[in-house]
Nucleic acid binder design. Structure first.
Lengths: 223, 223
DNA sequence: TAGATTGTTAATCGATTAACAATC
DNA sequence: TAGATTGTTAATCGATTAACAATC
């Protein structure tokens, strides 16, 4: 069966948060209108791309003047689904998990970390900022009682697969995986990696390419 | 002037670390050969894509049997430039910066965090694992004396731009930016973002798309 | 040999970019 | 008005995927 609807392209989705941050800054400065040209220049993109991206949010602009800042902000937040706060748990309260649990910026994305879980008894009943740490064995009970949709996975690589399976059994719909491990999970589960290795690989490659180009001659970018 | 050489596609670069992790596991298990088909199945990719990716590393396989595991490992490490260790500093020793400084997995990528810097005097002369924390005011001196190429930026968003400019003035070639802020830096500097907002945006979008599909095709969920 | 897998060449797909008419 | 900016339609570009001959 064909739905035909493809949704907003992922590359566009990835740029929306950048627009949003910029626009929120503009709003604080009291700016009411902004052109795609300005946004593009600020972010090192091409105006045409910014216009295409904006069109995905459903907002229309006025020729010569541009777009209404607050409308754009609202539309982007809505497009990203960040207007409905989602509760999440952090699983694995090591260094990275702790940092994530304490990170205050998530609120801006409509993401609320409500609890953390770990297998280490020394961590039980401590707090990471406002976030309580519980035994991992209690995670099912917690998820059942509270409305948790997302699991932020920050366990060691060798425990990532089994822990993620546990979370799926508990009914979580989406897993944000910070462990350096590719997970094999059922199709109905959304998995998003934030893989330091991948990110560093791209960094390494860019450095290499830049050095090669310098050797050869000059310029050109991508990312 | 045309160089013609475009380098390895970024999407391929991003998949190489996944292959590498898998292959290193195979090596530990004593496997000597592996087919693209197997790798693909394990990672949820198509065999043809894996073959294309592998061809970028310059390794050739044998029909019917596949590729020599250790050759592949070596070639991927070399392609990523992970065989030459690079020294890096972490700038910003808050929760995230501390976690990054303490993260032991970087060694596998040929990345070595040699020092951290912060403006907060309470953090000076403490240690994050094996990594000493110094005053940010000493960063230029440190970079000049030691061979540091990469800066890992983990400061608050409102300090990211100026701090990154400082690092560029100190001569760093590349900045790995964990701050939720888009940096404007000279073209000769390589910037790689690891932006939680972007990553979460993709997660949010995938969840939405999945829910839309479910609505269209049949069942209705609520959450 | 037969069959699985490789590597290459061509087709497809999707995103970016260009061109340009519409408009305030 | 004149000129900058928008939105749309078409062209380009690059990555993925398909097709298939080569090969162990």
């Amino acid at each position: 069966m064909e739905t035909g609807y493809r949704g907003i392209p992922i590359p566009t989705i990835k740029r929306l948060p950048s627009y949003l941050r910029l626009l929120q800054g503009y709003r604080e400065q009291g700016m009411e209108m902004v052109s795609a040209t300005t946004l593009a220049e600020e972010l090192g993109l091409k105006p045409i791309q910014v216009r295409k991206d904006i069109s995905c949010t459903g907002i229309e602009g006025k020729p010569k003047v541009g777009f209404v800042v607050v409308n754009l902000i609202e539309a982007i937040i809505h497009t990203l689904g960040w207007d409905n706060a989602t509760d999440a748990i952090v699983v694995g309260a090591g260094h990275l998990g702790s940092a994530l649990a304490r990170y205050e910026g998530f609120e801006r994305y409509g993401l609320k970390i409500v609890a953390a879980f770990d297998v280490d008894p020394n961590k039980w009943d401590t707090w990471l900022g406002d976030v309580p740490v519980f035994p991992l064995s209690k995670v099912k009970e917690y998820i059942d009682r509270n409305h948790v949709n997302i699991g932020v996975l920050a366990v060691p690589a060798d425990q990532a697969q089994e822990t993620s399976e546990l979370l799926v059994e508990c009914g979580l719909l989406a897993i944000w995986n910070f462990a350096p491990k590719d997970l094999r999970l059922p199709d109905h589960v959304v998995v998003q990696r934030t893989d330091l290795a991948t990110s560093f690989a791209v960094l390494s490659a860019k450095v290499r390419q830049k050095m090669n180009k310098k050797e050869l001659s000059s310029e050109v970018d991508d990312w």
